[in-house]
Amino acid sequence: MKTAAVKRRDDRLLGYGLLVPVAVIVFVIIGIPFVNAIYLSFTDKVVGVTPKFIGLANYMAIFSDKEYWKVLKNTVVFTVGSVGVKLVLGLLLAVVVNQNFFGRGLLRAVLLVPWALSGMVSAVTWRWMYDDTYGIINALLLRWNIVHLPVAWTSDPSIALLSVIIVNIWKGLPFFIFSLLGGLQTIDGQMYEAATIDGAGKVRQFFAITIPSISPVIAITVLLSTIWTFNSFEIVYLITGGGPLHASAVISTYTYEVAFLQNKMGQSLAVAGSIIPILVALIIFSMRKLNKDD
């Protein structure tokens, strides 16, 4: 019989051992370029030229640029809007495809497809559909007399951001549905049986059993999706190019502009680096939620 102390030591060794491959990926393969990129954000880096350390100058430059703040605000709206809607619809649809009914398999397949498409293809397809003269959406809206003038989906500054949010929801919804479904499927059916015997209704069961059981999954799905959405590039860049006049620009497209159009690699890394504190705060917050039940 092993003593408790020996068991604890064994667990510790095993704990480290199992993490070695992950640690290599995190600290070596991505860690080195990551640290390098952060360092370069404090330099005047231009591609092909040796960088010179310039302290906080890049950060000062972007914080004093009012376009940066406009873009940051857009990014927050874009992220909160997309993730919020994806969570609500994702939860609803995950519950739906977790029920038993004829055609469930087909519905699951259908719902997965947007995720299976590459971002570039989704973006160019939507851009085409959005156009006001040769796009199908306006053609149908006009034909059905829902609108009398084509909607300027991508060029009206008050609609453009919404238009890219819609595409982001379309593309990212499967991630929510299927991650949450995976969580729902691990719930022990006996818990519902017991609750039913106790006389709890479906709605109460949903909030008393379903949500708490999958709350770690919800937290992590939201966290991952928030980070991805915050950094997502293709949809905005390929549909509106961030336009008109930065009305739909987000941090990642702005990063691209600074790096590749203005040719300031260091400053562009500072733009990307400047949002790290926001994301870190978010991570710490969700971790606390995640570890609460430990």
């Binding site: 156009d131 006001d132 003269t133 040769y134 453009a160 549909i239 336009g243």
Partner: peptide, 16 residues
């Protein structure tokens, strides 16, 4: 000129 052209890339006028 079509309103969408405000955000067209180089492909937009070809397509139109």
């Amino acid at each position: 000129t079509p309103p969408a052209s405000v955000t067209w890339d180089d492909n937009g006028n070809n397509k139109a």
